[in-house]
């Protein structure tokens, strides 16, 4: 990020340019929609939330001269809208009703990773991740990250995203999704186990090997 775009001038015409940059706006809209649909299963509701977030951002466009700052802000609006939607659609798709999915999950996953005596299986031991900080600037990394998220069983993905992306706290998720605290803790644990393994197999090991 050493390009000469670190100016924080809040020049109006420059701000307007954000909206006139069709390629940037389209890419952002696609990304927001994807983010929303990962979390809200009704795609019409997800699209509405993205529209509203964009509209609300447009009304405050003067505040942003940089696309990155704009993007952070519009996503924070979107997150709030998604949390509202999740509260409302509670009865329809609470995570308690979702299946765990066909992939290795639950006890099978635990058995795959750990020996009977509770220690790591030899070849499943976590390896050192090389400089994870650098990945946030790498588009290829985020593609892998997306793929790993999508590979999670629906229930894991939903609860993980509520906790980590929407930053909802444990009591609120339990209330919303009608799951017990211990069940939420176990599900988040399993989601992280899987995500960790997926990232290590498809990104970190690839890089270091």
């Amino acid at each position: 990020m050493t390009n000469a775009h670190l100016s924080i001038d809040r020049d109006h015409s420059e701000a307007e340019n954000i909206f006139q940059d069709a390629a940037f706006m389209e890419a952002l809209r696609v990304q927001m929609l994807k983010f929303a649909k990962l979390q809200v299963r009704d795609s019409q509701l997800a699209e509405d939330a993205v529209q509203e977030a964009m509209l609300s951002a447009y009304q405050h466009i003067d505040r942003f001269a940089r696309q990155a700052a704009f993007k952070t802000w519009v996503f924070s609006i979107l997150k709030n809208k998604l949390i509202d939607l999740l509260r409302k659609e509670k009865r329809h798709t609470a995570a308690s009703q979702l299946e765990e999915g066909p992939n290795l999950s639950g006890d099978a996953l635990i058995e795959h990773l750990f020996e009977e005596n509770g220690h790591w299986q030899q070849d499943e031991r976590p390896k050192k991740w090389d400089q994870p900080d650098h990945n946030v600037e790498n588009d290829d990394f985020w593609r892998i990250f997306d793929a790993c998220l999508e590979a999670l069983p629906a229930k894991y993905g939903r609860l993980f995203m509520m906790r980590e992306f929407l930053e909802m706290d444990t009591p609120e998720i339990c209330h919303n999704e009608e799951v017990s605290v211990s069940s939420l803790n176990v599900t988040l644990y399993r989601a992280r186990l899987r995500l960790r393994e997926c990232l290590e197999d498809h990104w970190f090991q690839k890089e270091t090997s």
Partner: peptide
Amino acid sequence: GQQMETLRTLSQAYTKTKESDEK
């Protein structure tokens, strides 16, 4: 343990950075 922290940091970065999108 470190990777669990990294997962959290990455999740928070998911919607916030991606500066490479910046034109």
